[in-house]
């Protein structure tokens, strides 16, 4: 059984829930009162994760506190093709994007927490850093288009795409618009078009992929 200590509005927690859903892996979710309860900072929770961050994944004796490591675990367990083609170049590129997703969390993610959950911080600097990261992503996806590829690494979606998607798709919650980034907009559509895609508050599915509801 895979237990995930989870908060529904957290981009990092959603990253793991999305990956599990795409792989068809069942998670046992344990809701943590992140806001306003700050239960992730309690003594009991820090016994599990001294850093006091979410999500935390527990599988028997294995305790993971980094969401990108959880993606690796889930993909290795249930869908190794999500780890990428496996060449030295592709494996390094996947790692590069996993680290990059940390920069998205430290800019777009904190801007969102500032605007939504009253975090303190230099909001203008966070938004500026967020735009710099989005420009990098936009350029990479533009070069993917020139090469005829739809995804960050190789020709199929990988954990790199899933790691970067949540904080990008939620950027408008932190006052960062995606209007200047057409390649990101199309990539976001592709992620949301994946079979078994799941939503979170702020990231809706593509309604057009299902038939219109029948009239009563």
């Amino acid at each position: 059984m895979i237990r995930l200590h989870d908060y529904v509005l957290s981009a990092s927690c959603y990253k793991v829930r999305l990956m599990a859903a795409l792989l068809g892996v069942r998670l046992d979710l344990e809701a943590v009162d992140f806001h306003p309860g700050r239960a992730h900072k309690s003594l009991a929770f820090r016994q599990l994760n001294p850093a006091g961050t979410l999500p935390v994944m527990v599988v028997d004796d294995l305790v993971l506190t980094e969401s990108t490591a959880m993606l690796v675990y889930l993909a290795r367990l249930a869908g190794p093709e999500w780890l990428g083609p496996g060449t030295p170049q592709a494996s390094a590129q996947v790692q590069q994007w996993l680290a990059f997703s940390g920069r998205l969390a430290a800019s777009l993610g904190l801007a969102r927490l500032h605007d939504m959950l009253l975090y303190t911080g230099d909001i203008e600097a966070l938004r500026r850093d967020g735009h710099l990261a989005l420009r990098e992503l936009e350029s990479a996806l533009t070069e993917c288009r020139f090469a005829g590829h739809d995804w960050l690494v190789g020709t199929a979606p990988t954990i790199a795409d899933i790691a970067c998607f949540p904080n990008v798709a939620l950027s408008q919650d932190g006052g960062v618009t995606l209007d200047p980034y057409p390649a990101i907009r199309l990539w976001s559509r592709r992620v949301r078009s994946l079979d078994r895609f799941v939503e979170m508050p702020g990231i809706h599915r593509l309604h057009e992929l299902r038939p219109a509801p029948a009239e009563a």
């Binding site: 288009r145 057409p182 390649a183 907009r185 199309l186 559509r189 057009e208």
Partner: peptide
């Protein structure tokens, strides 16, 4: 640019 608005999309 045209390639950024595929069929069935809005921007």
């Amino acid at each position: 640019l045209s390639h950024d608005l595929p069929n069935g999309a809005v921007m």
